[in-house]
Amino acid sequence: MSTVRSLTASCRLPRLETRMLLEQALRRPRAWLLAHDDEPLPEAAVQLFLGWVRRREAGEPMAYLLGEREFMGWVFEVTPDVLIPRPDTETLVETALDIIRDRSGVRVLDMGTGSGAIAISLALACPGAVVHASDASNAALAVARRNGERLGAAVQWRQGDWYAALADVEPGFDLIVSNPPYIACEDPHLVLGDLRFEPATALTDGADGLRDLCAIVQGAGAWLRPGGWLWLEHGWDQAPAVRALLQAHGFAEVSSRCDLAGTERISGGRL
């Protein structure tokens, strides 16, 4: 019979990953694992754990194995239908909050919402805001809706490709945010690490990495109110190009902000 002690000793994964997978397979907290490390474990849970170990050894992201990832202090469901929320994207949320915090009735749009992490985080932090979120993928929107319902966030979900999702929505947003596909289709990172397992259509635009960013900037003027803001996440080397796009399409106060690693990760401006 397998025990916590024997499984931990035989597992080649890092200790933290081993513990996290055991906790999930057994549906028990860390304190229970420590207090019952020599007790026989249910065979079904053991086989579930061993299956996850094999998948993790093959490189599958921990977030997909556990089915969740923390973002902005909230735990979001994640599946292979959505990108895994990353700390870099918290820069986008924090910048958005600087604009809308303490404003009642402010209208916000998050495009390419994926798991809903951005839209839901904004709705929870600013309950007076009217938040819309869109995605071209019905599967991604299903995940986002479940996250919104579980966390109690008031978000209006819409399916469609960029602004096409807003056919029945009045223009006049105070803020548009997006973390669109921005990796060039020939970028070698797409076949490395976690990216191998994430949805390709959420990572790359199938072109040079600027196509979707350009489409969002070009269309924003019809949907923002005068004085409204647009902020976009982008690649580590794309800030100059995105700033140029914003300036060319009538945005002022254009600037970029850095992520935790000091990389220019988001750029935005005011219409």
Rank of each mutant, 00 (worst) to 15 (best):
T3C: 13
T3R: 04
S6P: 07
T8V: 12
T8L: 14
T8A: 11
A9H: 12
R12W: 09
L13E: 12
R15H: 15
M20E: 10
L22R: 02
E23S: 08
Q24S: 15
P29Q: 10
R30P: 00
R30A: 15
L34M: 13
D37C: 13
D38I: 05
P40S: 08
A44C: 06
V46Y: 06
F49K: 01
W52Q: 11
V53T: 02
A58R: 15
P61N: 06
M62P: 02
A63Y: 06
L66Q: 04
E68N: 13
F71W: 07
F76H: 06
E77A: 14
E77T: 14
V78K: 00
P80K: 02
P87M: 09
A96I: 08
A96R: 00
R101L: 08
R101N: 09
R101E: 07
D102A: 14
D102F: 13
G105E: 06
L109I: 10
D110K: 03
G116Q: 04
I118E: 00
A119C: 09
A119K: 03
S121C: 10
A123R: 04
L124C: 10
L124K: 15
A125P: 00
A129K: 00
A129N: 05
A133I: 08
D135V: 09
A139L: 15
L141K: 03
A144F: 09
R150T: 14
R150G: 07
R150F: 02
A153C: 09
A153S: 12
A153Y: 02
W157V: 05
Q159P: 10
G160T: 08
W162L: 11
D168F: 11
E170S: 15
E170K: 14
F173H: 03
L175R: 04
I176V: 15
I176Y: 05
S178D: 03
S178C: 13
S178I: 04
N179L: 12
I183W: 05
H189L: 14
L190H: 11
D194Y: 07
D194L: 09
T204P: 00
D205M: 08
G206Q: 02
A207P: 01
D208K: 06
G209E: 02
L210S: 00
R211L: 14
D212W: 01
C214V: 03
G219T: 01
A222M: 04
L224Q: 00
L224C: 02
P226Y: 10
G227T: 05
W231A: 04
H234R: 11
P240S: 10
A244Y: 06
A244R: 13
A248R: 13
H249Y: 14
H249C: 11
F251Q: 01
F251E: 02
E253N: 11
S255T: 12
R257N: 05
T263L: 15
E264Y: 05
L271S: 10
